[in-house]
Amino acid sequence: MDEADTKIIEALIGDARMSLKDLAAHAGLSSPGVSERIRRLLERGVIRSFTAEIDPKALGYSLEAIVRIRPLPGKLHIVQQLIQDIPEFCECDKVTGDDCFIARLAVPSIDKLDGILDRIADKAETSTSIIKSQPIRRRPPPLVIRDEGR
């Protein structure tokens, strides 16, 4: 990735709907040049998708929670499928350590949260934390790997 690719990606992170003309001006390239670079970035998997960020609260999901999930012995695949099938789970990471999954979910109420957790209670142990605020929204890592201290 060179400086022009970095400029294109930074601009798209700020506004994924930015026109090719505006991207070209931002990166100092022609529109066809930017289009070709975006195509290559997509092919290489650097850019995975162009998407809209949705505010769960605006849709009536007033509560978000992080749930640490530890499946009971022999229940890992069943629990993973349950998490995938419950649409309120917005994100889930399979992790090392005491828990197997760390998931984020959005719900309209504590009652709905309890109902979802009840669906997996006989297959896994859970530990839930209600999200009060999100000081850092999901963001990509730095576009250039920093070599600090070397």
Rank of each mutant, 00 (worst) to 15 (best):
I110S: 12
T126A: 13
S35V: 01
I145R: 15
K57M: 05
A25C: 01
K57Q: 12
K7M: 11
L20T: 01
P140E: 07
S129N: 11
A4I: 12
F101P: 08
L105K: 03
L63T: 11
L143C: 08
S133D: 15
A65M: 06
L105W: 04
A106H: 11
P108E: 14
R146Q: 14
I69V: 12
A25N: 11
S35L: 07
L29T: 08
R146C: 00
A27K: 06
F101N: 02
K21S: 04
P140V: 06
Q81Y: 03
I54N: 04
P56S: 10
I102M: 06
A121H: 13
Q81F: 00
A52H: 10
L105E: 08
D2S: 15
G45A: 02
L59T: 00
K75A: 10
D5Y: 08
L82H: 12
D93Q: 12
I8Y: 05
A52T: 12
E148Y: 13
L143R: 02
A27P: 01
V79L: 01
I13G: 06
L113I: 01
L41Y: 02
R17M: 02
I13M: 11
H77N: 14
R150K: 13
I130F: 15
T96Y: 10
I9F: 09
A27H: 04
A106P: 00
P71I: 01
I116W: 02
G115D: 07
R104L: 12
G14C: 07
G149N: 09
Y61L: 07
P32R: 07
L23I: 08
P140R: 14
P141V: 05
A24M: 08
L82K: 15
Q81I: 00
A24R: 09
I13P: 06
V46C: 01
L117T: 00
L12A: 13
G115A: 15
G74R: 02
S133E: 15
L117G: 05
A106C: 13
A16W: 04
R68I: 02
F101W: 06
G97Y: 07
A11E: 13
L82S: 05
A124H: 13
H77V: 03
T128K: 12
S129P: 06
I13E: 14
R138A: 15
L23K: 11
E88Q: 15
T96S: 15
S62K: 10
I47M: 04
K21D: 00
L42A: 04
V46M: 02
D122R: 13
A16N: 11
P142F: 07
P73Y: 07
I38Q: 06
D122F: 03
D118E: 15
E43I: 02
L63W: 08
F50K: 07
A124Y: 13
G74Q: 03
L143G: 15
I145T: 13
L23A: 06
D85L: 00
E88W: 05
